[in-house]
């Protein structure tokens, strides 16, 4: 069941990924050519002249962009793999012969989650690594943290896999696919709102962003991953980064990890409850 799921989607995702990596290499290379890495850019700050490390600013922003793309591509893959797992497959008659076997619904659901989360995690880590190497190869820059952001992205996708599987129990496959994309978009918008809120010191915007990252923890994980790539960068470079859409996002609190576990477990339990009651 697992290996077969992969076969169906693999070509599409492979082409998308190759297109992204090609574009990304080309873009980073061209962009890097157009700036002078040794020049310093100045921003005015009350008469003082402060220096920003252009190379770091540039590399981190581009890499931030690629992390967004990794999350996006991972989401596409996750949706592909899971959007129709319950209702869609039941409507097509794929699910019934499996559910009748003694392994049962819980094992089936867990198996689907595990397989999809694993495939997506491997995929996300591979694309992340490829972007990392491309960025380094062009600019010579390494992020401040390399491993944790990759893990966080993989877990963020696992959360999306969980949400998508959960949705597939309640919604028809098309409705679920659209819903998950909207949830994904909502998460990102909330994250950007949070950044704007930070910049403007707006409490209400910050509250919205906070609630959203609890409700959709993949967003908090993504933000934390973004934050980690420049976690040790200081001074005005950091300030400049944090103004951009892909830089200097918010670190997550210590509660993020336990919350992700609780969140997935709750999704799983409620999902299983709904699945068990469902007529197929």
């Amino acid at each position: 069941m697992q290996e077969s799921v992969r076969r169906r989607v693999f070509p599409v995702v492979l082409i998308l990924t190759a297109a992204f990596l090609g574009l990304y290499s080309f873009g980073v290379y061209k962009a890097y050519q157009s700036i002078d890495p040794f020049a310093t850019e100045s921003i005015g700050n009350g008469g003082e002249i402060s220096l920003v490390d252009t190379q770091v600013l540039f590399s981190a922003t581009l890499f931030g962009l690629s992390i967004f793309a990794v999350l996006f591509l991972g989401t596409v893959l996750a949706i592909f793999l899971t959007h129709a797992v319950v209702r869609g497959d039941a409507e097509r008659g794929l699910l019934q012969p499996l559910v009748v076997r003694p392994v049962g619904r819980a094992a089936l659901l867990a198996g689907r989650f595990g397989a999809a989360a694993l495939v997506c995690a491997v995929y996300v880590i591979l694309v992340y690594t490829a972007s990392l190497l491309i960025t380094h190869w062009v600019t010579g820059w390494w992020p401040d943290q390399i491993f944790l952001p990759a893990i966080e992205l993989a877990v963020a996708i696992a959360v999306l896999v969980g949400i998508s599987l959960f949705g597939s129990i309640l919604l028809s496959s098309i409705a679920n696919g659209i819903a998950i994309f909207m949830v994904f978009g909502a998460g990102l918008v909330a994250g950007l709102l949070g950044q704007i809120g930070e910049a403007l010191n707006s409490d209400s915007l910050n509250t919205i962003a906070n609630v959203a990252s609890w409700a959709l923890p993949f967003e908090a994980l993504y933000q934390d991953a973004l934050n980690r790539i420049t976690s040790d960068t200081e001074g005005f470079t950091k300030v400049a980064l944090s103004l951009g859409p892909f830089g200097g996002a918010q670190p997550a609190g210590a509660w993020l990890w336990p919350w992700v576990v609780v969140y997935l477990a709750a999704l799983g339990l409620i999902g299983l409850w709904a699945f068990n009651r469902k007529d197929l």
Binding site: S4, R7, R8, R92, G93, L94, Q96, P97
Partner: peptide
């Protein structure tokens, strides 16, 4: 089942 389908790639 009356209406069933098996995954096409098996």
């Amino acid at each position: 089942a009356e209406l069933f389908r098996f995954p096409g790639w098996y």
